[in-house]
Design a binder for these strands. Structure first.
Lengths: 244, 244
DNA sequence: CGTTATTTGTGCGTATGTATT
DNA sequence: AAATACATACGCACAAATAAC
């Protein structure tokens, strides 16, 4: 894998961390480009490159003549999930840890939500960590004809840890690419399993996100139900109109 | 008033247009950095800057040694999800009931999130009902220069009930239309005020949605914080990509 | 199987413009 | 008016991945 992280990435990671820790809360200005360049012994261009990523992620905004500021966000883990690619790229800064390996099960409710004829589905349970801290437990259900492509994937074995997403693992094997993800977001109490995986008390209010991925023909390909710890995670989405 | 567009933006706009027209469909490679630099008589760095935006938007992906390709072998990208229109049309089957009329206040946090110079903002608090049942309490903050257009609107007086949205009331008065709504969604306990307005116990877990509306120039126009009763409301959004 | 050309990635330096304080 | 801070743009060098030979 990667041996040396680029300098601009090292810097953007550090800034991301500091912002997440709340160091620049309350409208506090971030260090200037010149300051960061001097302190980290890199060029101003490299600092700018790091800031460009942070701006694209929406975690800072910049004002000529004034400086750079963190967007207000309670210091939670902030992730822009405004496109299907965003969902797939969740892997770039989080780790997936399999709690219960992918295997066939009978699940009437999941099968019905996937609009299947049978009650047979494959499911896998995993949690995701950011900076070593678990923040979400997800259960994924797959129709049999899709699950068979990844049933032997080492990434989905018990206890496996990797930087993947299910949808990213699936995509190469699908005849028809995923084009739609319908999501519903609500609040639900943590079950014993959710509590154990995310380190909170049973009954703790969680952000519950249900996603149904479908292909261009409208066939359901994956159902995912996630319980996010609200203390460590905020769901973000940007709506646009007028062609962008 | 208007300044000349930066070279990298002119280039990225042209590429966006061409990609949307399907010129690079079917895995066709886009021109190389060197080609574009020569053809447009700009430096390679400027071409790279243009590509960085397209990559951040998820419109293209790049592979070292191979080239740049449009995402979606099959067409243009639709980053459109739930729409701002959906938010504005919330009024069709719900009623807005003003709890606390629009008036000027000092609010450091809201002003900072609206990126204002002063601490002076206008705010209004209202709840929304569906079939006579309250399901959400919303506080809206407006910059002074925007609030003055609606300060005397009867819809925002104390106790007023109507089938409107704030953004719908504002839109006709704005120089520049709202084009973006950045939302963060999390869980929060009901305050006494929220509990009273929605008929639940204080401390009850609520779905908290923060929306920051901005115009095409990126200027913040409205900040709204809503507390939804999860028993009566689920947030839905659909992400799509790839037309036809 | 290595060599070479192509193409993108990283990093630095410099200069100039524009917005804010 | 001057200093500060971000924005744009060009140039160069070298690294790394890929593909063609």
């Amino acid at each position: 894998m990667n041996v040396t992280e680029p300098a601009h990435r090292i810097l953007s990671n550090e800034l991301r961390r500091r912002i997440a820790e709340g160091e620049y809360r309350g409208g506090l200005r971030l260090p200037t480009e010149a300051e960061l360049a001097g302190r980290h012994d890199v060029s101003r261009q490299t600092v700018r490159r790091a800031f460009q990523d942070l701006v694209a992620e929406g975690i800072v905004y910049r004002v000529p003549g004034r400086g750079t500021f963190a967007t207000e966000s309670d210091g939670r883990y902030l992730r822009q999930l405004g496109s299907i690619e965003d969902l797939m790229n969740l892997s770039t800064d989080t780790t997936m840890e399999v709690v219960s390996a992918l295997r066939r099960r009978v699940d009437v409710e999941a099968a019905s939500r996937l609009r299947l004829e049978t009650d047979l589905v494959d499911s896998v349970v995993f949690r995701r960590l950011h900076d070593g801290v678990p923040f979400v437990l997800t259960t994924v259900w797959l129709p049999e004809h899709i699950a068979r492509h990844v049933r032997d994937a080492p990434e989905l074995a018990d206890g496996a840890a990797s930087a993947h997403t299910i949808i990213g693992l699936l995509e190469p094997h699908l005849e028809s690419p995923i084009t739609e993800a319908a999501q519903s977001i609500t609040v639900a109490a943590a079950s014993a399993e959710v509590a154990a995986a995310t380190g909170c008390e049973p009954g703790h209010p969680m952000l519950r996100v249900d996603r149904l991925y479908s292909d261009a023909q409208g066939r359901a390909a994956e159902l995912a139900v996630s319980y996010f710890l609200p203390e460590h995670y905020t769901y973000r989405v940007t709506l646009r109109r007028g062609g962008h």
